[in-house]
Structures are given as structure tokens and as C-alpha cells.
Design a protein around this nucleic acid. Structure first.
Lengths: 339, 339
DNA sequence: CTGAAGTGCGGAACCGGTACAGCAGGAGGG
DNA sequence: CCCTCCTGCTGTACCGGTTCCGCACTTCAG
């Protein structure tokens, strides 16, 4: 029992393949009566268009690619990805466009994978995540003519259309808030130093401190893991000049940092204020609840998907900005204790 | 500048299309010399096989499907999915097989989606997650001849090959451990009641309590969210007969439950012991650290992917069991305080 | 009554590969 | 020297659709 083809339908309707093709695609060229008959037969035998055959005639693949350059087993550590995929799906699913997902181990592999996907006609476009400074993927994609959208700051995306949020503004808001509370020594536990958004946030953090008249801030770079977040926090808290506030680049590190503070018998927020970049259920289940920079990651992904689909349809696309993360003050921040 | 085809290569090598096809697929029929020449040209012009053309000749789609029947925006709430996808990817990526991911809103849509993917030749197989009792997808898949593997208890998977872990054994181990500590009133904050693994765990929980000579346990069903976990915990703790231990069906609810206990000024573990199903970074960053049922979710996904790929290759497949979750005692469990 | 325009449909080519039969030409055995 | 076998390659059909072109027939204006 093979899949039915338009030839089967044609035979059983007593018309030619061509008539069937026109009928099923709602194109002119057949009478309404014939069209109805053909459609009825198609429905009856459970006909589906062969994606392969259509693709061979230059149709779209109806799928977009997302390669993630991280070890497969660590995909899940950060909430970010799943949220992003959620958002992307929320745009793709209603249009019946699938997401091709694959993990790769290097940017070179990633470029090669996209080249293959594109060459094989398996995807119509691609999303670029985890933008680096001087990212090798940017020139590579500029050379291919695969529609692509980058998630990250436009200055790192170069000629590739970027979907981005103003992380600098969020950092400024946070630093200004902490300074207004009376903090003077603010530290930052940042993520991977080579990521473009880390660079942006680092610069904004320094600029914000300078603008608020604070001394040069301490910044530590990590790999986003709870372990490194804890270690960085420990390092900051046992230093001679202890910061009175720490801003973390993700929620996992902030929660880990809170544990470290509690181990060291520091009261949060009296002795130490904490801010997490990216909100999550966890910033709200720990005690005290963590002040966080909230943003709609899913919307970030959805916006990128929208832009990508527009690019695939050869509509003109431009960089698109999503709202910056907003500071949501909770119980982990307050005026510093007077020593 | 179009994509090069084997016809282009044939022209430039001065041979026929067929010779090129043989050469590039390492099939006999051409001399080594010609093969080398053809391969060199192919590499030079950047030729990639057209997936569509190959699929048309009955080749595999080199992709497997995963439809997830949850609102796209909530995909990220549970760590489970991302871990699962990580594990699946760890098997697929080395074989250059892609994962087609799409969220759907009902099981009927999911069946329809798979029917379409399969009919269109876009996937070679499918993974079934979130098995329900009397799952409508099981008979539907039995009717299609799409290779499929279910993640869940074999009794729910029916004729579909299942990859499963013995959740009952893990629950038994947990109940026995708590009973050995001296607990007599143990409650369970479970997940969605219609999910097959919830049914299995519920039954095992009751059986375990009976076996240990404990009174009939209280079980509350939730939607896995932190909110419902907190609410359920609150309900249990203000009841006349307060449990001295609570076992949660995921880590998020357990952490939420811990917060509720602390709000109610209960000391964990002196007044209340807590156990989380599924370990995560968060069970270890809260204080006290949570006793948890650890399992390798990624391996679960990897195993399912392996079985599916075997099924796709028409190798005989059987149900496959992955190791059950193991109890890892931490600071959230101890003997109950004598009242 | 003739010519033009429009409708409904079919034939054939094509997309980019693969499968299969067959055909030269050289080697080797009898 | 002839016949067979093997090697290396080509021609052709085919997968399941789409698209272009054109044909037969009807309709209607002139």
C-alpha cells in the first residue's frame, strides 16, 4: 500500500496529471466540477504532496535551521534556549514551518552544516545565535545567499539582519538604580567574554559606573554555570574591598551567588544586594526573591522568526529591536548597610 | 549563480551524469582515475546532493520528527525537554540526521502533523512523548507505518516500541527510605493525572506505602508549575494531619515547596523532609540542598533516538529500558522530629 | 457564416538525482 | 583465432510533482 500520487488520482478521476495538479493547487485551468471531483478523490485516498517532488521544482523546503554551537549535553543548562525555541515555534507552527535543530561543536562545523542544509535544499533560512565578536560566521553567511537572521547586537552582525535588544540600557538602568540606593562598589559576574552581548554589557557596566561617579567596577567572566557563578562570588566576597552589590549575567549564577553569600553569613540584601539578568521561576522561589532583569526571551525568538520568514519571502528586512530587559526590584536589593 | 548539479559536473568532466553519480557515491562502475577527477571537480564547484532529488528516488529524509503537544510558550518551563532534546541530538548529530521540531496544541493535530510529515517524506521516523493513559496516538501510529518510538511505560505504548525507566522502582526506593527514617505520613505532589508515568508513580507510591505498613498516603495532582507546587504544599501543610515528608514530581515544585515550608516557619528537614523527582542545578543551590531522584534524561532521549534509528533502518526493535532514577539523599531529608 | 477570444484540458519537458540494461574494448582461456 | 568475461562507461527510464505550450471545443461579435 504505497502513498497515492497525483497520477493515481488522475487515473481514478479519468483526467490527466496536469488537471489534478491544477485542481489541487487551486489554480485556474480546470472546471469547478472537475476540481471538486479531484479534491474529493484526493481526500478519500489520503493524498499528500510529496515534499521532495515539490522541492525539486524550486518550491520552499518549509523549514528553517537552527544550529547550536554547544555540547549537546549542556543545551539544557540555560533556560534561554528552550525559551527561544518556544518563541520561534510560536511563529513557525501556525505557518506549518518546521525547525531543523542540530548541535555542532564548532563554528566551522556550523557553517558547514548550514552550507549542507542549504545546498541540499532542506532549509529556507537560518538563525544565528551566540554571536561572537568578529564572528567567523558573518562573512561566511554573507558569501552564501541563504536568508539568515542573527540574534545579537547589530554591530556584531555586520551585514546580516540582526534582532537585538538594548542590553546596554538595561545595564545602565540597573547600575543607576544601585547607585541611587547608595551602592558604590558594584561588581559584575559576566558570562563568556567572547560573546558579543557580553562585550556590550561589559562596556555599558563600566560606562554606567563612570556616569554615576562610582569607582572602576570589578568584572569577572564565567561560563554561565552555577559552579563558576559561585566561585566568582566567593572570590568577590573574600576580597579586601568587598562589593555591596553584584549583578549576574544569568539567573543560575545569581542563585548560586545567593547560596555563597548565605554560606558566608552575609545577609541579603542588608550586607549584599544581588541582581540577576534574566528572570525565571527560580529567582522567585529562593529567599529572598531576587531582583531581576526581565525580558521576554520567547518574544525575542518570535521576532527573529518573523524577520527570517520575511527574508525567506524576499521581503526587505531591517534590523529589528525588541524591548530591553526591565529591572524588576525584589527583596534581594536594598540600600547597603552602613559599615 | 545556481547550485551545481551532477549534470554540470558531468559536462565539465566530459563524462555522463551516471558516471558522476557512481563516482560520488563510491559505487563501482568507474575507474579510480575518473572517480578522483570527478570528486575533485565536485569539491571545487561546491556540489551538494539535492536532498529532494534523492528523496524522490526513495532515499531517506535524514530527519526524525518530534512534535510536542504543549503550548509553545511553556516548552521551557520544564528542564526535561531541553535535556531530552540534548540527548536525542547527541545521537542524531554524529549521523547528520536532523531533528524536526514542532509544537502542536492537541493530539489530533499531532497525529495530523506526523501524517503530513510522513506523507510529504520529510521525516523517517517519529518520537512520541508525554504518553497518556489510553493515548489516541497509539492506535493512530499503529495504522500508519511510520517508524515510531514512544517514551513512556510499555503498558501505555501498546504495540509501539517503548523506551522507559522503572519509575515504580524509584518511587519504591524513596518510600522505603522515608519509612526507614521513621516517617509515617508521606505525601506526594504529583504531575498531570492523565500522563502515563504519573499513573505508574501514583500506583507505586500507594503500593510502597502499603508495603511499608504506612497509612494510605495523600496525593495531589498539579500541572508541574512552581505555583501549583507551592499551592499543593500549602494545602498539605495546613491540613489537620500534616505529612512529615513530601515527594514532588519535579524539581521546580520541590523548590517551591521548600519556600512554602520556610514561609510557614517549618524547619527542613527537622519538621518536614522533601524529595524532588529529577535533579537539577537548582536542587543543589537552594538551602538545604534537596534530596533528589536523579536520572539521566539525556540518556533517555539518546536511547530513544538509537532505537528509532534502528527502527528506521528496519532492524528489529524491542522495548528498551534505561536505568531507573536513583535516590540521592541530601540535606532535605532526615528522621522526622518527635512531636 | 466566419473569425476571434476564452475555457478546459492534455502532451511533453523538466527539476536532480538513481537504477538498470546494454555496449564497446581489452584481457584471458581454450 | 574465436569466444567469454570483465571493466568502464553511456542511454534511458523513472521518482512525483509543476509549468509551458498548444489543441479542441464553445461562445459571441461582426
Amino acid at each position: 500500500m504505497k502513498r497515492p500520487t497525483i497520477a493515481d488520482i488522475a487515473r481514478s478521476a479519468g483526467v490527466s496529471k496536469v488537471a489534478v495538479s491544477y485542481a489541487l493547487n487551486d489554480q485556474p485551468g480546470v472546471s469547478e466540477q472537475t476540481r471538486a471531483k479531484i479534491k474529493a478523490i484526493a481526500r478519500e485516498v489520503g493524498w499528500r504532496p510529496s515534499n521532495a517532488a515539490r522541492a525539486l521544482n524550486g518550491a520552499k523546503a518549509r523549514a528553517v535551521g537552527l544550529a547550536v554551537c554547544r555540547p549537546a549535553r549542556t543545551l539544557s543548562v540555560e533556560r534561554f534556549f528552550m525559551e527561544l525555541i518556544s518563541g520561534i515555534e510560536s511563529e513557525l507552527a501556525p505557518r506549518s514551518i518546521a525547525l531543523m535543530l542540530q548541535t555542532v561543536t564548532s563554528h566551522d562545523d556550523e557553517i558547514e552544516l548550514y552550507r549542507r542544509w542549504w545546498g541540499e535544499g532542506r532549509v529556507d533560512g537560518a538563525l544565528l545565535v551566540d554571536l561572537h565578536d568578529d564572528d567567523v560566521r558573518i562573512p561566511a553567511f554573507a558569501a552564501m545567499d541563504l536568508p539568515v537572521v542573527a540574534l545579537g547586537p547589530p554591530e556584531a552582525a555586520g551585514p546580516v539582519p540582526a534582532v537585538w535588544s538594548d542590553d546596554g540600557a538595561s545595564i545602565h538602568e540597573t547600575v543607576a538604580y544601585l547607585a541611587a540606593l547608595g551602592h558604590r562598589h558594584i561588581a559584575r559576574v559576566a558570562g563568556l567574554p567572547r560573546l558579543a552581548h557580553t562585550t556590550v554589557r561589559d562596556a555599558a557596566f563600566e560606562a554606567g559606573c563612570r556616569a554615576a561617579g562610582l569607582p572602576e567596577p570589578v568584572m569577572v567572566h564565567t561560563d554561565y554555570s552555577g559552579d563558576e557563578g559561585a566561585r566568582a562570588t566567593r572570590g568577590l566576597l573574600i576580597a579586601a574591598e568587598r562589593p555591596t552589590a553584584i549583578v549576574y549575567d544569568n539567573d543560575i549564577m545569581a542563585v548560586a551567588g545567593l547560596s555563597v553569600a548565605q554560606e558566608l553569613s552575609l545577609d541579603v540584601p542588608r550586607d549584599l544586594s544581588l541582581v540577576a539578568w534574566d528572570d525565571s521561576p527560580f529567582t522567585q522561589v529562593v529567599r529572598p526573591q531576587l531582583t531581576a532583569l526581565t525580558r521576554d526571551i520567547a518574544e525575542y525568538g518570535a521576532c527573529a522568526a518573523r524577520i527570517l520568514l520575511a527574508a525567506v519571502d524576499e521581503e526587505p528586512v531591517a534590523d529589528s529591536q525588541v524591548p530591553a530587559a526591565r529591572l524588576v526590584p525584589r527583596a534581594s536589593t536594598s540600600a547597603p548597610q552602613r559599615r
